[in-house]
Design a binder for these strands. Structure first.
Lengths: 328, 328
DNA sequence: CTGTTAGCGCGTTCAC
DNA sequence: GTGAACGCGCTAACAG
């Protein structure tokens, strides 16, 4: 079943060196013996032993990708385009899921390194200098997306801060003057890598502070729905609820519906991410779309370039667009 | 940076054989030298070279999983539990996406075999004896889910046929007598592996034929929405639309809403799969839930058992439940 | 042109 | 207890 180059050598009455020259069409071999070897190899269905090749070449043509969440559509979509691009270039992918477990993430990265991946793409949940020096010791190219590490690691994502600012402008242009901003908890700031929600939050604050005649609230509670209800009731004019991700917006839309609060008549809602299920939601949600496929593709592309020794940009932003629908 | 057992041997003034005995705590070594070696290994941050180990051991502790679709929530969820179980047992996963491309699927499987994975979990898009003899030549355990191969390959899934039959009973118990069944195209039957839609379709037909005083239509067109509209208009009594998957149901709900056809007042709708986004849809969709996590977990578990030489069942069904909501 | 040799890093007999 | 030697399957540099 498993035929080796040694066997082919014996059958052809030559040595493995010669077989190798034929198989990898290298110079220094007569057309005649080459043909013969190729024919035998073909007949026997010879396939090189990838591990043995990797061992001697020092490269595995394998990438590791570490995600903290696969249920989030963004990441499964991102994986899809990452994998497609990597495959085109002959790379296979180990996909590992850290589930936002910081220790597991480190354990996984160690295992990937043990397995000699040529590079790692990472949506990190760890942060800080200790973690980064751990990464630096690895000696393989590492690229990040989603949450960011320090400027030393190439990062592919969108400009969250700017995007939120534009969202605020957009909402203001719709006539709103009262904002409710919904974000995941931000208190783990020191411990966990929550770059994305932080950036979006900062963007929101900066946008508001640059405006006059604006009221705004930031909600980061776990049971944010009750807080929202209270704020909506207390509001003097029609408020806009800006969500740091569509998932919150969906939850809120459902909640408002059960409480007979109408969107956009009584309150405006805007999301972020444009996850595909928005197609089936009512009312159609205004949100921010960004090119996830591009993030995946570029990440693979850049990581591989880096593996091949090229310098790559430390920051790559992909585009985004406000998708104007009926919830504002 | 990369420290080998050879280096440790030199430092400790012993040979690699001895180092190996210490590292893999095997007998035949004095406690003293063992301690010394372990200490040095620790200090140098020694990590065994996984490829070299794999090469000599003949196992890679790596599984391949081939999916034809990652955008389908079912599969990303399935991967999640598959990976978690595999990880517990020390396996890493190559995730490859065939995108329903039959040739790509074969190419991928070949590459996985080249890379000496210990086993493959497959949601096949190919079918037939030729494909299966190709798989058989591989000599590694192969397990399937989703679409099925012949009885020679272990299969982990649900009993689609029985589930649909129960769905029909459920709908009948709600008083419906007219059915519209929506399925993906079935004409590729000979070429492509469409086991799941076939089984569900068969189940539907069998259920209907066992009943009297029942009218039913099966729709497999690409633009099924127009057909549905026509059928709903022509129906003498209130029809139930049974969908072979939730995605159709969502599309249909949206379509009906834009045409002012009310659910369930004018027409009933039922889905299949209970994808998580149903939480945000209105009206809440009646559907069939099945234990996807269990499929992923069991698949990994069984595949690994098989790798270890155990016999495993050729068919494993996980449970399902009808989720009764408000669309019927 | 082809054969020989020496690794890649590790596991596993054998002797001593 | 420890060392020496061979093999996993392949690549590559050096002779001839």
């Amino acid at each position: 079943m498993k035929v080796t180059s040694k066997q082919i050598a014996e059958i052809c009455g030559v040595t493995r060196g010669t077989v190798d020259r034929a198989l990898n069409n290298r110079p220094g071999i007569s057309a005649e013996t080459r043909q013969k070897i190729m024919k035998v190899a073909e007949e026997l269905g010879y396939r090189p032993h990838f591990l043995a090749q990797s061992l001697v070449k020092g490269e595995t043509k394998t990438l590791g990708i570490v995600l903290f969440d696969i249920h989030n559509r963004i990441f499964s979509q991102l994986f899809h385009s990452f994998e497609a691009e990597a495959r085109k270039q002959g790379y296979f992918i180990y996909l590992v899921l850290s589930n936002k477990d910081k220790e597991l993430e480190i354990e996984y990265i160690n295992s990937l390194l043990d397995r000699k991946v040529d590079g790692i793409a990472l949506s990190p949940i760890n942060k800080g200098t200790k973690f980064e020096s751990f990464l630096n010791r690895s000696n393989v190219p590492i690229l990040s997306f989603g949450n960011r590490l320090s400027a030393r690691f190439p990062f592919v994502w969108i400009d969250d801060k700017q995007a939120i600012k534009e969202a605020v402008s957009h909402i203001v242009s719709r006539g709103y003057r009262t904002f409710i901003y919904v974000s995941p908890p931000l208190r783990n700031k020191g411990k966990e890598n929550i770059y994305v929600p932080e950036q979006r939050h900062k963007g929101f604050l900066e946008a508001c502070k640059a405006l006059t005649d604006i009221r705004y609230h930031v909600i980061t509670d776990r049971d944010y729905l009750m807080t929202i209800k209270r704020l909506v009731n207390e509001a003097e004019d029609k408020p806009a609820i800006l969500c740091s991700s569509d998932i919150y917006a969906l939850d809120i839309l459902r909640f408002l519906k059960t409480h007979k609060i109408r969107v956009p008549e009584h309150v405006g809602v805007m999301g972020f991410d444009n996850i595909d299920i928005l197609n089936y939601v009512n009312p159609p949600l205004t949100t921010i779309d960004f090119n996830v496929d591009e993030i995946g593709r570029r990440s693979a592309e850049l990581l591989i370039e880096n593996i091949k020794g090229k310098d790559i940009p430390l920051r790559t932003n992909v585009g985004y667009t406000i998708i104007d629908r009926d919830s504002l």
